[in-house]
């Protein structure tokens, strides 16, 4: 694909964004968020949007995305931005699940434009895996159909003692809820540090083939708070900058690529 050299940020008009809107396709939404942060509108058509690359007809619109990255790399911010996008354009509320309440809402961008949007996001803070499972398994009871389900920090619910069955259960329940509501699902998780305790995480990964990886490269050149984003077949690799106040910016890597 062609990449033109661009300045770091460029504003996009809301109409242009709306033109690419596919509220139920999480990969799209995330791509849009990323592209919005990137400030560039040319990158949302990577590959074949919404279809997986599996041959034949074992394909589905990619409506669930797992965001993996180290803690503090801005996953919550990305998720929140995506929630705002869906709150604005989606048909139902957004359910935002996190272990702890967001310390601060990632500033800038849409949220400043429309405070009413926040009202359409329901923040829920189940404190344990059990509560989370109960919440997700009774979603058909308690909520009207949301347009997006966001789980921030899934790893915080999966204690090292949790096995792959737990990871599978919560992933399966989330996918099942999303399938029932026909809404998008966006999950963020930090990779567990200990090698032994990642059974649950590996199971979670099996359930989300569409994964967006954020990884840091500590080199002397790059400043702190800089990460690489890899979202194969949905977005080109780019660089994510996190500022101290939580604002996120995305830029293309300096080197050219094809």
């Amino acid at each position: 694909m062609q990449v033109s050299s661009l300045p770091d940020f460029q504003p996009i008009s809301a109409t242009e964004l709306a033109a690419w809107a596919k509220p139920f396709c999480m990969a799209q939404t995330l791509s849009r968020v990323l592209s919005e942060l990137l400030g560039c509108k040319e990158f949302h058509n990577q590959g074949d949007p919404g279809t997986s690359v599996l041959p034949g007809h074992v394909s589905s619109t990619v409506s669930s995305v797992l965001l993996v990255g180290p803690p503090g790399c801005g996953k919550s911010g990305l998720l929140f931005s995506a929630a705002l996008v869906a709150a604005e354009e989606g048909a139902g509320p957004v359910i935002f699940i996190s272990r702890e309440s967001l310390q601060r809402l990632p500033g800038g961008g849409r949220e400043a434009r429309e405070p009413l949007l926040l009202k359409r996001i329901r923040f829920l803070y189940p404190s344990s895996l059990r509560e989370l499972l109960h919440l997700v398994s009774s979603m058909h009871l308690s909520f009207p159909a949301p347009s997006l389900i966001v789980v921030d920090g899934l790893e915080r619910y999966l204690a090292p003692t949790c096995g792959s069955a737990d990871g599978a259960l919560i992933s399966g329940l989330l996918l099942d809820s999303a399938a029932h509501f026909k809404c998008g699902l966006l999950i963020s998780a930090a990779q567990p540090l200990e090698m032994g305790g990642d059974g649950a995480f590996l199971a979670v990964e099996r359930y989300f083939p569409a994964q967006c990886h954020i990884y840091g490269e500590v080199t002397t050149e790059q400043e702190e708070g800089t990460f690489h984003i890899s979202f194969p077949s949905h977005f080109p690799p780019c660089v994510l900058h996190t500022a101290k106040d939580g604002t996120l910016k995305i830029s293309l890597p300096k080197a050219s690529f094809s």
């Binding site: 792959s164 599978a168 399966g172 996918l175 099942d176 399938a179 590996l202 199971a203 359930y207």
Partner: peptide, 19 residues
């Protein structure tokens, strides 16, 4: 077992399929 993804609550699933 769930209808939307491959999950089963049996131990064989968590062992043989997942692990």
């Amino acid at each position: 077992c769930f209808a939307s993804c491959h999950y089963c609550s049996c131990p064989a699933f968590s062992f043989s399929v997942l692990r």
